[in-house]
Each structure stands twice: as structure tokens, then as C-alpha cells.
């Protein structure tokens, strides 16, 4: 009798410990994820709801009480230069996006598909240039802008953004073109298609997702940048959103946190939406680029 029950008991306790083990594993997993989620959402939510608060809030905290209003958004466009900042940012970002995407797509295609004299040498040039942070020339930009009378002008700033993004993005683009099978080119060539036709109607349609990602990044880098814009734009009406928003909060005596929050939402919301829409493409693109070079 005893001999018969002993093994069953053993199995039972083993099952129990496995169940307990699983419980704690799930408990800690969800606990970690919940805490992390709270830490992420808390500051985002504070900024979000402050945008709808009355102008004389006393503290920058999470508080659902009090009066809710849309007046801040109206004030943003009537009493501050936010409208021009937004427009300036769009002009710079869109020019940067269009030009950089064209240049990078062409160069990436060539490096993926062609063998030509000096290819290895110029690829090495790309790699070294890629490591030079654009900021390495900070002082020179300032002096050059002064000399060319380009201080406070957009073309100079935009050119720097475009040039700065080219090396790295060309690499990523090359990696993505490499994934398009060469057989496609070969068969098109046999059918008598020229260089341009192969590029335009065979290969290009297949890399559309990556082009969308490149466009997002090229668009984002001017929006995200504070340093160059602050450095090279001097009059307040020429600021970009990043530089402009900072003027709302950099004066400790007169912080306009509600205006800041409203302005922050208007710039962060569309960008976050684009980000989530394009996210699945750029994760695979980045991984391909990161592991293959």
C-alpha cells in the first residue's frame, strides 16, 4: 500500500512545485511589464493632459481635475510664433526628405548592383565618413555660415541635414537592394531592358517599403535636431519647432508649461502615428543593415 502511494505523492509535489514555479514566473513577468508601462505612460500622460489645462496651473503633475480647455491651442497660434515654427520645420524637413531620398536611393542602387573601377575605394570612403559625426565640423559650420551670409537661412541648414544623413542611409539602402534577387535584373536585361528601365520598373517597386522608411528618417532628422538649428538660426521667427518650444520653458521665472504641452502634442502626435505605421518595415531594414553592413 505505502509502496504504491509514494511515487504518486512524489509526482504530486513535483507538479505543485512546477505550478508554483510557473505562477511566480508569470507574476514577475507581468509585474515587470506593468511597472515599465507605468513609468513610460506617466510622463507622457502628464504632458498630454497639461495641454488642456487652464493657463495658471501650479504644478506639472498628473491631475485629471480642474477645468479642461482648448484655449491653449488657440493661444499657440494667435499669441506665439508657433505657426511659423511649424511651417519652417515642414519646409526644411520636406526638402531634406525629397532630396536625400533621391540621392540615397540612386547611390544605394549603384553600390548594390554595379561593379566599377574605384568601388572598393569609395565604399571605404563611405564607411569612414559615416563615423564622422556631423558635429565634428560644428565650429566650421558657424564660420562658413558667417562667411556665406547663410546664418539664419534655411538652405545652409537643410544642406547640412541632407549631407549628414547620406553615408549611413546609403549603407542601409544598399543592404536592402542586396536582398532583391539579381535574377530579376538578368532576365530583364535579356528581354532588352536598359539600365534605367531595370532600375525604375523592376527593382524600385520592390524596395518601396525601405524608401518609405528612408523618407521617414530623412523627414525626422531636421524635426529632431536641436543643436544645428539653434546654432545656425538666429531670429526667433525663423526657429524650428524644437528650438521654439524650448523658449516656452527655458525661462525659470516665466515657464509657459501649458503652451509647451499643447505645442508638444501637435508635433509629437503625427510623428508617432507615422512611426507606428512604418515600424514593421524599418525594424527588418535595420536588422538587415546592422548584421550585414
Amino acid at each position: 500500500m505505502e509502496n504504491a502511494t509514494a511515487p504518486t505523492k512524489n509526482v504530486n509535489s513535483k507538479q505543485n512545485s512546477a505550478r508554483r514555479h510557473r505562477f511566480w514566473k508569470e507574476f514577475f513577468t507581468y509585474f515587470y511589464m506593468a511597472i515599465l508601462a507605468i513609468i513610460i505612460i506617466y510622463p507622457v500622460l502628464i504632458t498630454f493632459i497639461t495641454a488642456f489645462k487652464d493657463a495658471n496651473v501650479s504644478a506639472f503633475v498628473l491631475d485629471f481635475g480642474g477645468k479642461w480647455t482648448l484655449a491653449n491651442f488657440k493661444d499657440l497660434f494667435t499669441t506665439t510664433l508657433y505657426g511659423s515654427w511649424y511651417l519652417n520645420t515642414m519646409v526644411i524637413s520636406i526638402s531634406c526628405m525629397v532630396i536625400q531620398v533621391i540621392v540615397v536611393t540612386l547611390a544605394g542602387y549603384v553600390y548594390s548592383r554595379y561593379r566599377f573601377a574605384g568601388k572598393k575605394f569609395s565604399l571605404t570612403f563611405f564607411i569612414v565618413i559615416q563615423m564622422v559625426p556631423t558635429m565634428a565640423a560644428l565650429t566650421a559650420y558657424y564660420v562658413l555660415a558667417n562667411m556665406l551670409n547663410a546664418l539664419d537661412h534655411y538652405w545652409f541648414l537643410t544642406a547640412i541635414y541632407i549631407g549628414g544623413g547620406i553615408p549611413q542611409n546609403t549603407w542601409l539602402m544598399k543592404g536592402y537592394f542586396d536582398n532583391v534577387p539579381y535574377d530579376l535584373d538578368e532576365s530583364a536585361k535579356l528581354d532588352g531592358a536598359g539600365n534605367f528601365k531595370i532600375f525604375w520598373s523592376i527593382v524600385l517597386p520592390l524596395v518601396k517599403p525601405m524608401i518609405a522608411v528612408q523618407a521617414l528618417w530623412a523627414f525626422m532628422s531636421p524635426v529632431q535636431d536641436y543643436l544645428m538649428a539653434k546654432f545656425l538660426l538666429t531670429s526667433e521667427s525663423h526657429y524650428t519647432v524644437a528650438v521654439g518650444l524650448q523658449t516656452f520653458i527655458n525661462n525659470a521665472q516665466n515657464q509657459q508649461v501649458v503652451l509647451f504641452s499643447a505645442g508638444a502634442i501637435l508635433v509629437a502626435l503625427p510623428i508617432a502615428c507615422l512611426f507606428f505605421y512604418l515600424q514593421r518595415f524599418f525594424v527588418s531594414g535595420l536588422l538587415a543593415g546592422g548584421s550585414k553592413g
Binding site: 507622457v44 502628464i46 524635426v223 529632431q224 524644437a242 518650444l245 520653458i249 508638444a264 508635433v267
Partner: peptide, 11 residues
């Protein structure tokens, strides 16, 4: 990552 960094830092 989705929210522009400068917005988060200022917040």
C-alpha cells in the same frame, strides 16, 4: 522612441 526625443526631454 516614437515621440521625438526633444519633446520628451523638455517634458
Amino acid at each position: 522612441w516614437a515621440i521625438p526625443a526633444f519633446v520628451s526631454i523638455m517634458s
